[in-house]
Design a protein around this nucleic acid. Structure first.
Lengths: 238, 238
DNA sequence: GTCTATATAGGGATAGAC
DNA sequence: GTCTATCCCTATATAGAC
């Protein structure tokens, strides 16, 4: 069962170092340094700096000199963690993929009713993107410039996420919880609304909307749209 | 009153050349060529090629040599229309701003009831972004890398658009058409859904959703969310 | 493991011929 | 008004010292 945002945050915080370690092992062939603790420390810096710089000026506009200045490594030092600039992308992508897959599947599975599952999926995605906003933003903005294999992966994971929503909605329709509707279109809509949260974070901050409020808002919009009209013949839209 | 998509398209087609002409006059100081017909012809090519290339690989990753190859101009030729690469952005931005302002205000003003106005605004925005998808996509993706003044303009026009929706919703709430809700949040949502149409165009094409279908879908979602419950005490959500 | 110094190419920008 | 040839800087990438 998915808890409140604060416990979610705490859970995730504990696992981040493990994830960097996994990133290291997955990219061993590209990294010439052998001491694990050193690698983890520097990879963390590199990933953080890359996300910060790429998200503010664009990945291609960020120079490796910028990155060195921001992360505290030298050019030579940096190049013992990557073979070329594109490897940075790969590093970032593996990092996010690992976390996203683990987290979403973990939190969504357990809920019982269709409504609960939908709400859980929305919350898990929002909470995750709130904590990993930089990664989600990067992935969205840079897909088009990713090297082909990374691009395929990025598109695949997008689809996985959309399918989570799609299957919940379909279940709801077939068991009568929801009225008959174009399920895929509704799933698309949910995804667009979830994406807006991390793409336009400032907009919501300015309005003082918290992540919990936004989760409730989306859920209510969807429930109102999908809930069948009451049986006595009263219809909502004229 | 806003008509169907086809007539909308026809209306707009007629005015595009005039708009390029306006772009020329607005950027006279940066363009060293004097023959209007020549300028209009070449500006058209330049704008089209820039949008195509920048949208596929990112503005910063697009080289001016790419642009010359695609547009058919030489480097020297190109440089009689711009002073530097950033001027390209400015060209593109003025082009879109002029069209967007003109079109939206033109189509939205006339509708009478709140529902009609909301529907008209949604349709006008969708139809416009369908016809000028490349521009909308570019503006969204490149805001962060725009030179400061262009960035301000881009943010300002975003706000103008959001305010159009905001004011319609507020009107609806105050005259009782809609139930009391956080109007700004609803306006944000509408905007996110409109943006998804041009940001993820392929997704909708794959689902065979036409622009008219999408307009109706969004409108229905919003109306269902904002319409007050019937007076006899039956509530929609449990 | 990390740094400084350097090689090399690619891209923005311009001069000047036609 | 448009082209070709060229300048020059910047950014990626590497060699080799410590």
């Amino acid at each position: 069962m998915i808890e409140d945002y604060e416990s979610f945050r705490e859970d995730l915080r504990l696992s981040t170092e493990n994830i960097i370690r996994e990133v290291y092992h997955e990219n061993r062939d590209r990294i010439s340094i052998k001491t694990e603790t050193t690698v983890v420390r520097n990879l963390t810096r590199i990933i953080e700096s890359t996300l910060r710089l790429a998200n503010s000026k664009g990945f291609h506009a960020m120079t490796l000199r910028d990155l060195c200045a921001d992360s505290g490594l030298s050019m030579g030092g940096l190049y013992s963690y990557i073979r070329n600039k594109d490897d940075l992308i790969h590093l970032i992508q593996s990092h996010g993929f690992i976390i996203t897959r683990k987290t979403l599947s973990h939190y969504i599975a357990e809920a019982k009713t269709v409504q609960e599952r939908l709400y859980a999926a929305i919350k898990a995605h929002l909470y995750l993107s709130e904590l990993m906003r930089a990664w989600f933003y990067f992935s969205y903005m840079e897909v088009k410039s990713l090297p082909a294999p990374d691009k395929r992966d990025a598109i695949a994971i997008e689809l996985e996420i959309e399918d989570i929503f799609l299957s919940v909605i379909k279940d709801g329709i077939s068991n009568g919880t929801y009225r008959l509707q174009n399920a895929r279109l509704v799933a698309s809509m949910i995804k667009a609304l979830l994406q807006d949260w991390y793409l336009k974070r400032r907009k919501y901050r300015d309005q003082a909307i918290s992540v919990e409020m936004y989760a409730n808002f989306i859920s209510e919009v969807i429930e109102r749209y999908l809930t069948p009209p009451p049986p006595n013949g009263i219809h909502l839209t004229k």
